[in-house]
Computed example of a mutant assay.
Amino acid sequence: MFFPQPRKCYDNFNLAATGGTVLKFNDNVLNNNVTIIPQDSTSINSQNLINDLPSGLYKIEKTYNDGAVEETVIIKEQ
């Protein structure tokens, strides 16, 4: 009997995200005071996404075809 190799929860074999959102925490605190900026597949996969953001606290959510969601929290300073 053949059993496939187990996968880790963070294994993501997708080439690129299909979309996502950028949440900007308006008062630089992790709370509900946010601005939600929807992103299409081109903008969420852009290499300049983080460089183009103004300084502040952000959560970037990338959504993939298989339903996986990757979340990254960053604080960008001058």
Rank of each mutant, 00 (worst) to 15 (best):
Q5I: 09
G20L: 07
D66C: 04
S43W: 03
N12Y: 07
R7Y: 01
A17L: 09
R7F: 00
P4K: 03
Y10F: 10
D52Q: 03
N32S: 13
Q5F: 15
I36K: 13
V29I: 14
N45T: 00
I50R: 01
I60K: 02
N48K: 11
D52L: 01
S55E: 13
L30V: 15
Y64P: 08
V69T: 12
N12T: 06
N31E: 15
Q39Y: 09
S46N: 08
S43G: 01
N26A: 13
T35N: 10
K76G: 08
D52A: 04
E70S: 13
Y10E: 08
L57H: 00
I44P: 00
I37F: 07
G56H: 00
I37E: 09
V34C: 04
Y64R: 07
K59V: 02
N28Q: 03
E77G: 04
I74H: 11
R7S: 06
A68P: 00
T18P: 02
T42K: 08
L23T: 12
N32K: 11
N31Y: 15
I50M: 02
P38M: 14
G19H: 10
N51E: 08
Q47L: 02
N51G: 02
T63W: 09
Q5T: 07
Y58F: 14
L49F: 01
E70I: 14
F2I: 06
Q5N: 10
S55D: 07
Y64V: 07
Q47S: 02
N12V: 10
L30I: 15
I75P: 00
T72F: 03
Y58K: 06
I75E: 12
A17N: 06
A17T: 14
K76P: 04
F3E: 12
P38F: 14
F3Y: 11
G19Q: 15
I74N: 12
V73Q: 10
P4I: 02
I36R: 11
N12S: 13
K59I: 00
K76S: 06
F25H: 14
P4S: 03
E61R: 13
A68S: 07
N32Y: 06
I74M: 06
C9T: 09
C9A: 14
L53W: 03
K76E: 07
P38Y: 10
V22M: 05
K8T: 09
E77Y: 06
Q39V: 05
V69S: 07
N65F: 07
I37T: 15
K8F: 07
N14T: 08
T18E: 10
C9M: 14
D11V: 01
T18Q: 11
Q78Y: 05
D11T: 03
A16G: 14
N26F: 05
I74R: 04
M1Q: 04
N48Q: 15
I44T: 00
K24R: 15
Q78C: 03
P54T: 12
N32C: 05
P6C: 07
G19N: 15
I60S: 01
D27E: 10
N28H: 01
P54C: 02
F2H: 09
P4E: 02
K62H: 05
S46E: 00
E71V: 11
Q39R: 14
T18H: 03
N51P: 00
E71W: 03
A16V: 14
T72E: 08
T72Q: 09
I37Q: 12
G67N: 13
L57E: 03
A68D: 05
N33F: 12
V34H: 08
Q5W: 06
I37Y: 05
